[in-house]
Amino acid sequence: MNENELELVRRQIQLTFDEIQYLIRMLYSTKDYHTKNLTLNQLWNKVSLLHFLTNMLDQQQISSTVTPTLPQPSQPAPPSHMNQTTPQTVPQNLPTITREQLANATGRNGNPAYVAVGGIVYDVTNNKAWSAASHFGLPAGKDLTAEFASCHAGQQWILSTLKPVGRLV
């Protein structure tokens, strides 16, 4: 972002604050149920917009190479330091996990949800993209190296967002 664009974002933030204040005053002054609901919904929108705008400024500070584009389904631009094609640096002292143990980690009935990619086992129990311990038809408890390679080629950074828990033996 250049100076002009930064300025625009700041101005938007300021305007959004003003609008939020206006909406709050409106909530106090109306008795109409529908107007209240509508106003609350608008407030929610404004807060999310603020969230988005401040994130954009934060990102700008972390690394000026990250362009805050609109989110793409193929993942937003990964921070450049995560953009390497070799597996991420994982802790050396990980315990070994057998294929049997992996097969039990289905994320059901009290078992954690594990998936293996490239010999490393990751915990996806609470990963947002793995609700119901499954992701695009893939169940947890499996070695998904091939699937990861075909579906997320060039997106190695995804692995670095996961928690490594062991080495597959």
């Binding site: 994320g107 059901r108 129990t125 311990a133 499954s134 695009f136 038809g137």
Partner: peptide, 14 residues
């Protein structure tokens, strides 16, 4: 197909 299961009750919490 790829979005199933739509609902499950035996998923580990924690």
């Amino acid at each position: 197909d790829k979005m199933g299961p739509f609902i499950s009750y035996d998923i580990t919490r924690e």
